[in-house]
């Protein structure tokens, strides 16, 4: 019995996701078909990539509210590059560098300035949303060529390209967090900063890097969103930070840091995606969808808390 219980606790997020799928497929037959499922995965990919970056930050005990704004500015810059030169490679590289720089900005102020991550990234969120408005003059940048829109819309072997990108990002993030020294330090830092520093680890550097990772992840999402829609909106990505945080928490990662997993985050993002899709298929009004989503998050965290006691 105990063994069964520990297995259930270990895979609780996955069990939750499967249960959700079963319930939705009973209610609506339109859920369980290949096209719809691929559609769900594509929709999940943007949030999943952001949430993977967010997991790194949250595992250290921090938080990154600026990801939505990073998505918007990197999307706008990549779109502008496409309009000017149609150089897809350049657009992607510049977007990622900008994302990394903004993340670095957050990281330096959090670690060296010793200011709470919530405040720092809240400020960054506001600043870079403003920068995006200034840069785009408040209007979307559109008519992006086919070479670029390929990223968000093409399929390879029947699998949507954003899903493939997400899978690659996941595998890299998984390897780093589970198999490398840096990954171990992330968990250690989130568990106890003083002990980690006294173990001879440069904790400021680790903090700085996790925000860079989060910035890069948001930039990748920025490219996906922009190419998928074929246009960069200055309002893109607003509120995405909350979806990402929700995915991380649903995946069983503790907001106080030191506990959780990237796999959990992916499952958390899928739970949100499946729920959105299911509610849409059931023709639930978006007003009610928001209520249901909020309740599901609360319920999941309550169950998690009970199990830990």
């Amino acid at each position: 019995m105990d063994k069964l219980k520990s297995v259930i606790i270990k895979f609780k997020s996955l069990i939750g996701l499967l249960a959700l799928c079963v319930i939705i497929s009973i209610i609506t037959p339109r859920f369980l078909n290949v096209n719809n499922l691929l559609n769900v995965l594509t929709q999940v990919s943007v949030n999943a990539v952001i949430a993977i970056g967010m997991s790194y930050v949250i595992l250290t005990g921090g938080i990154d509210l600026s990801v939505g704004s990073i998505l918007a500015i990197t999307g706008a810059i990549s779109a502008a590059i496409i309009v000017k030169s149609n150089n897809v490679f350049l657009a992607i590289i510049v977007a990622i560098i900008i994302g990394a720089l903004i993340g670095g900005f957050n990281g330096i102020i959090v670690s060296k300035g010793k200011i709470q991550p919530f405040i720092v990234t809240l400020a960054a969120m506001t600043i870079f949303r403003g920068v995006t408005y200034v840069y785009t003059n408040g209007t979307p940048i559109s008519s992006l060529g086919r070479d670029f829109t390929f990223i968000g819309n093409a399929k390879v072997l029947g699998i949507p390209f954003p899903v493939i990108i997400t899978l690659i990002v996941f595998l890299i993030a998984y390897y780093i967090i589970n198999e490398t020294r840096f990954g171990r330090y992330v968990y250690a830092l989130g568990g106890n900063e003083d002990s980690t520093r006294l173990s001879g680890i440069n904790t400021d550097r680790i903090k700085m890097i996790v925000y860079v990772v989060s910035g890069i992840a948001a930039a990748i999402s920025g490219v996906i969103v922009t190419s998928r829609i074929g246009s960069a909106s200055p309002n893109a990505g607003s509120g995405y930070e909350l979806d990402a945080i929700a995915a991380v928490v649903l995946g069983g990662t503790s907001l106080s840091g030191g506990e959780g997993s990237i796999t959990g985050t992916i499952i958390g993002a899928m739970i949100i995606g499946v729920l959105n899709n299911g509610l849409n298929l059931m023709n639930v009004s978006p007003f009610y969808q928001s209520i249901v989503k909020g309740l599901v998050i609360l319920l999941a965290v309550l169950i998690d808390k009970r199990n830990k006691k």
Binding site: Y187, A188, G190, G191, N192, D194, S195, T196, L198, G258, E259
Partner: peptide
Amino acid sequence: KKEGLILKL
């Protein structure tokens, strides 16, 4: 507890 261990590891 404060300066040696990382209890979650």
